[in-house]
């Protein structure tokens, strides 16, 4: 039962194809307006693309290319959607909300309620069973909403930033619940948080401008980001350029590093490295085998306990003491120095 999806929607400049293996959870990341919610809406049947097809196993969700067009209505897709807001039906109790899906599919009231109670228990909200949604906190409501989505036993669970609206106390519990529930489930989760992707997803897709620009196993994409967005997510610097014998020829200078596989000279390659591994020098250090990149400082801002110094696409984290010592200011031309062992190189 693998999931296959391809769709284009010109009005939103959307052109995406995806393939997931059974039981996988896919995290979709990308900047705002990249088309993440469009993707979920098309899968759920709430938005109709211009062309494309999608199927779960043998079951066709839609096929707009065939001579006989197929378009399953949302209620027949078994793709429950959990949005950023819980959207619990305000006129129903938590229990009735969770029982809603089964009741709609013809399950008798008593059976649906009994199953709903189990799902409330699974999301640790059984004590709120008789409460109305307006008597629940944001985190409680979102957990009930998760129970409601799971209670329909969806073949594919769609989660649209389920933790974005939660406060810092509610999010960890929700993440823990999701980790347990998504482990053996077929799910697509939209998130802004790389932690969610790491904890919950088997695969990651980076969506930008309505296109998938990176796709692969979570760790692979986050450790070896090919796009600036993915690199930014994992907190890494990413610069690209053609391969030379000694390293990669970038806008900031030549950079050497370790590569998993040998790269033929001339191929486009990407180098990633952590901002923490960089030292800043006002004058070029002599006689060092280290990488030295030349750049002009664009911004200086606090970053946790450290100071983040940005220079174009590069970012370096230095201590407050170092900042005071060097008297850095935006506009200064400086040298970013780092060891070759701190740089990873792979084909872009």
């Amino acid at each position: 039962m693998s999931f296959h999806f391809e769709a284009t929607l010109a009005s939103r400049d959307f052109d995406v194809s995806l393939h997931c293996e059974p039981g996988e959870t896919l995290a979709v990341l990308g900047p705002n307006g990249a088309g993440k919610s469009t993707l979920l809406a098309i899968i759920a049947g709430l938005l109709r693309p211009d062309a494309g097809k999608a199927s779960i196993g043998e079951r066709v969700l839609f096929d707009l290319g065939a001579p006989a067009r197929t378009w399953l209505p949302p209620h027949s897709r078994e793709t429950a959607l959990l949005a950023q807001e819980p959207l619990l039906f305000p006129h129903l109790s938590a229990l009735e909300n969770v029982a809603f899906g089964q009741r709609s599919q013809g399950v008798r009231a008593a059976a649906a309620r009994s199953s709903a109670r189990d799902w409330l228990a699974a999301t640790e909200t059984e004590e709120f069973a008789s409460r109305r949604p307006d008597q629940l906190s944001g985190g409680q409501a979102q957990r009930v909403a998760l129970a409601r989505a799971l209670a329909t036993s969806p073949e594919l669970l769609l989660l649209d930033e389920p933790m974005a609206a939660l406060d810092i106390h509610s999010a960890p519990m929700m993440r823990r619940l999701l980790k347990r529930e998504l482990a053996h489930r077929f799910a697509i989760i939209i998130t802004h948080d790389v932690l969610d992707a790491l904890m919950l997803a088997d695969k990651v897709a980076i969506l930008e401008g309505g296109r998938i620009i990176e796709f692969g196993p979570t760790l692979e994409v986050l450790n070896r980001p090919r796009s600036r967005f993915a690199a930014g997510l994992s907190g890494l610097n990413l610069i690209t350029g053609p391969t030379r014998d000694e390293g990669i020829d970038t806008d900031y200078g030549l950079i050497a590093g370790t590569s998993e596989s040998p790269l033929p000279p001339g191929t486009l390659a990407a180098a990633t490295f952590s901002p923490a591994d960089i030292s800043i020098y006002l004058d070029p250090p002599h006689g060092s085998p280290r990488n030295m990149l030349t750049a002009s400082i664009t911004e200086i801002e606090p970053h946790g306990d450290a100071i983040r110094v940005r220079a174009g696409q590069l970012a370096a984290d230095i201590t407050v003491a170092a900042l005071a010592d060097l008297a850095l200011e935006p506009g200064m031309r400086v040298f970013f120095v780092l060891k070759a062992t701190a740089v990873r190189i792979y084909p872009a």
């Binding site: 049947g45 709430l46 209620h75 949005a83 959207l87 039906f89």
Partner: peptide
Amino acid sequence: KYEAVAATLGARP
């Protein structure tokens, strides 16, 4: 929004 959620939960129009 509520109607969309209800539909994805399997409720007919």
